[in-house]
Design a protein around this nucleic acid. Sequence first.
DNA 1: CGCACCTACTCAATAAATTGACTAGAGGTG
DNA 2: CACCTCTAGTCAATTTATTGAGTAGGTGCG
Lengths: 197, 197
Amino acid sequence: MALRNAVMAALLEGEASGYDLAKGFDASVANFWMAAPQQLYRELERMESEGLISARVVEQERRPNKRLFSLTEAGMEAVRAYVAEPPGKPTTIRDELLVKVQCADVGDIEAVRAAITERMEWAAAKLARYERLKERLLKGRTEDEHCARAERVGPYLTLLRGMAFEKENIQWGETALRILERRAQATRDGERAASRT
Amino acid sequence: MALRNAVMAALLEGEASGYDLAKGFDASVANFWMAAPQQLYRELERMESEGLISARVVEQERRPNKRLFSLTEAGMEAVRAYVAEPPGKPTTIRDELLVKVQCADVGDIEAVRAAITERMEWAAAKLARYERLKERLLKGRTEDEHCARAERVGPYLTLLRGMAFEKENIQWGETALRILERRAQATRDGERAASRT
DNA sequence: CGCACCTACTCAATAAATTGACTAGAGGTG
DNA sequence: CACCTCTAGTCAATTTATTGAGTAGGTGCG
């Protein structure tokens, strides 16, 4: 029942449909919590049945109707209760890329390098998006002004974390690529030397 | 079936019991992949039945016997196949702390600050452990020397990523605490002002 | 004009992950 | 000596998460 907390966090930004949430909903929450569509739809229904959120059907002309969910008073109370409860164990990090990097020495180094490169491109794209989101949040004000005046700082703080994470991905990727390239080089040299014998 | 890849990555370091893996197994793999004990025991059995790993029972005098698993040739082949296959979608990040931070504005700011502080302490402890592990890996050599001579660089690269991640946790935590403190201050001031009316 | 893709979902099935309880001997603490 | 923790697991139950297929109209592209 941790997904529901992420959903509530997302709904603090305003009402959203299951589809919105599945698509990343402004990337702010998707930044630190991702879930497959089915999971969201199921959870939303459960939450509605428990009275944490309420749906409003919006009829649309040239596309399927959608249900916009928003937090009820009970939902707001649940958020407050959740925030107050003692923090659970550390983050669940599961990074396939790092599993591959760990195995680099017994596998195809070029494949690993390709995977790292892909990750770096992904990170760069995400970072650009975050950058735009930040501009939109700050609206030309400095960080100090924004934090002093805006009614919410949570989204700004999580955005900062997301940006730092992606920057790290890129920086680390550069180092890793460099080191692996030298390895691949050495392997090729070794092969050449061996083939000369 | 992604856990098994992490298990194989861990077993590249040498044989290990299910208990070892559950305890973090040298922290190297635990850094980017965590799993509950039960999950590991189940997966290990399945992998053994599929011939990817083999067990060796070690009888112990004053404690339960244990089964040390190691990769078979088939397991090694599976690792190579896994590394070569195209990279899947991005990382699964699920960070409860960030969910709380996102909700900070409607909840108890002090509780959020406490959660951040706890995370920072955790991160600092992990970082110290990684630092020691790094020393052990490098054995007094520079990074360049190690990467040129050591037979494996994968563990070093993932370690670097883990260290960068924890450093980021700490740095971001400082910023977040500072901003939230000013918020809490403003709220208290607001309350004082309101109570004077 | 046909095909792929976008919105906005639902349903069903399977796989993976978490939780709780239990075994059992060893070692240490109050 | 009762209680707690550590090693090294097992078993069962439940909850969560992922995958795949299906619906149905609309949009854009060559």
